[in-house]
Measured scan of single mutants.
Amino acid sequence: NKFNKEMRNAYWEILHLPNLNEEQKNAFIQSLYDDPSQSANLLAEAKKLNDAQA
């Protein structure tokens, strides 16, 4: 299933973003579980936030 793979990839990438705190990571990961079809968008948002907090 495409979403499972996308979701897993997004999950791991978000988990390893160095500039997000636990609360931010948890919020993105919760959103992933709530709507796996948004994995790519959530990952993009997480990366933007990560870069902004660098």
Rank of each mutant, 00 (worst) to 15 (best):
N1P: 13
N1R: 03
K2D: 15
K2M: 09
F3Q: 07
F3D: 14
N4E: 13
K5P: 05
K5I: 02
K5R: 03
E6F: 05
E6A: 09
M7L: 05
M7Q: 14
R8F: 13
R8G: 03
N9Y: 15
N9S: 07
Y11D: 01
Y11P: 00
W12V: 04
W12S: 02
W12F: 09
W12K: 05
W12A: 02
E13D: 06
I14V: 04
I14M: 09
I14Y: 00
I14H: 00
L15H: 05
L15A: 03
H16I: 03
H16D: 02
L17F: 06
L17R: 02
L17W: 02
L17H: 04
L20K: 00
L20G: 00
N21L: 07
N21G: 11
E22P: 06
E23I: 10
E23L: 12
Q24W: 08
Q24M: 11
Q24Y: 05
Q24F: 07
K25D: 00
K25E: 02
K25W: 03
N26M: 14
N26T: 08
N26A: 15
A27V: 11
A27Y: 13
A27P: 04
F28P: 00
F28K: 04
F28E: 00
I29V: 06
I29F: 13
I29R: 10
Q30E: 06
Q30H: 14
Q30S: 11
L32W: 03
L32V: 05
L32T: 01
Y33R: 05
Y33W: 08
D34G: 12
D34F: 12
D35E: 07
D35P: 01
S37T: 08
S37H: 06
S37L: 03
S37N: 08
S37P: 12
S37R: 08
S37K: 10
Q38H: 07
Q38A: 07
Q38N: 10
S39P: 14
S39H: 13
S39Y: 13
A40G: 07
L42V: 09
L42E: 03
L42M: 06
L42Y: 12
L42N: 05
L42Q: 04
L43P: 01
L43T: 06
A44E: 13
A44P: 03
E45I: 14
A46Q: 00
K47N: 05
K47I: 06
K47P: 00
K47F: 06
K47W: 13
L49M: 09
L49G: 05
N50R: 05
N50Y: 02
N50K: 03
D51K: 12
D51F: 14
A52Q: 11
A52V: 07
A52M: 11
Q53L: 11
A54M: 10
A54K: 02
